[in-house]
């Protein structure tokens, strides 16, 4: 299925994976990222239960330098 991750289209082999499963498949460590789907914050404690739906738009953000 198709989703958008950080502005880039992605084809996922797994249908409707959990966020946890999607993060693992993309190589992210769950503890050091925060996720929003369709511009809504998704708390970490729902990563294993919240399933990613086709065409959803994900932002996966990490700590970065800032002013």
């Amino acid at each position: 299925m198709q989703v958008v991750v950080n502005g880039e289209p992605h084809t996922l082999i797994e249908e409707r994976p959990s966020i946890q499963s999607l993060l693992a498949s993309l190589g992210y460590e769950t503890q050091s990222v925060a996720v929003a789907i369709n511009n809504e914050f998704v708390p970490r404690n729902t990563f294993s239960s919240r399933l990613v739906q086709p065409e959803e738009v994900l932002e996966i953000l990490s700590p970065m330098q800032g002013g």
Binding site: N6, G7, L26, G27, Y28, E29, S32, A34, E59, I60, L61, S62, P63, M64, Q65, G66, G67
Partner: peptide
């Protein structure tokens, strides 16, 4: 500090 899109590896050194 801030939050930004990153690849799985980049930004680790900073953090």
């Amino acid at each position: 500090v801030s939050l930004r899109r990153q690849t799985a590896e980049s930004g680790k050194a900073f953090w």
